[in-house]
Amino acid sequence: MLEQLRKKAKELLKNKEVEVIIGYQKSNNNSFTTPCFIESEDGVDRLTWDEHCVYNLSLYLKEVKGKVGIVAKGCDVKSIVALMQENQIDRDRIKIIALECQAQVDQEGQILEKCRTCQVHIPGMYDELVRSKTSPSKIESKESDKEYSVLEELEAKSTPERWQFWQRQFEKCIRCYACRQVCPLCYCSECISEKTAPQWILPSPSLKGNTTWNIVRAFHLAGRCIDCGECERVCPVNIPLRRLNKKMEKEIQTMFNYVPGLDSKKKPPLVDFRVDDPQEFIR
């Protein structure tokens, strides 16, 4: 697969179809990877592809100008779709080199939680698709029916218990905003957390401010989060942010039968209105 990836990347650069390719390269000490930006044909040999390519590179799409190629897994492609829906990127200037992905692992070598139930091992949108020669035409996750099993433990708790759980988590937050910065959908040029007049969210790391911050962010990602899990991965104090987003995802799915990141033509339900929308909450 790596050979093919490099070949495709080289072609794109050679034919001037793109000016830069965003991909993965081995990190300095070789044990993991790091994002890289390749601008010349001889640079493509730096590209790598293995189970350490955890980053969702679509994060960089908005800031890299001009024609750009991007190496993307199925989950990353979902965020590209979402960015298109939200008027953030112009599909015409982007070439997606999509990669079939079985699973990614963390630094300890554990398979990532999201990969266990992944539905997009073969990405849904691309210009070039790189697949492994040996894998079947359709790949299904062994636990694909357990999509929301991560929520079971929380959902079994009573409301006060749940609140307590999250209070304990939010207490840890140091407001480094890595979750926001790594999120492809937190692309706002100025985040609501930075607004000072009025100050919606207390800026210092206190339980109150942290709670508002984390809940507001979860709200802002409702119906938009494509579950790349990056926020949870980068949180230095291990707040299980994915669970928060997953819960929102589940609610949206049951209410509006909508899963973000699959169809760029669809309108996200929370910025759409129809006369027959469910309105149980107002009754």
Binding site: P35, C36, L59, C176, Y177, A178, R180, Q181, S204, P236
Partner: peptide, 22 residues
């Protein structure tokens, strides 16, 4: 280019000492 502009390196650094007041 790779930097995502989060605060982790600054906050976890033992010598970084910038602060805001509100």
């Amino acid at each position: 280019r790779q930097c995502i502009s989060c605060g982790i390196c600054r906050y976890l650094c033992p010598t970084c000492h910038c602060f805001d007041i509100a």
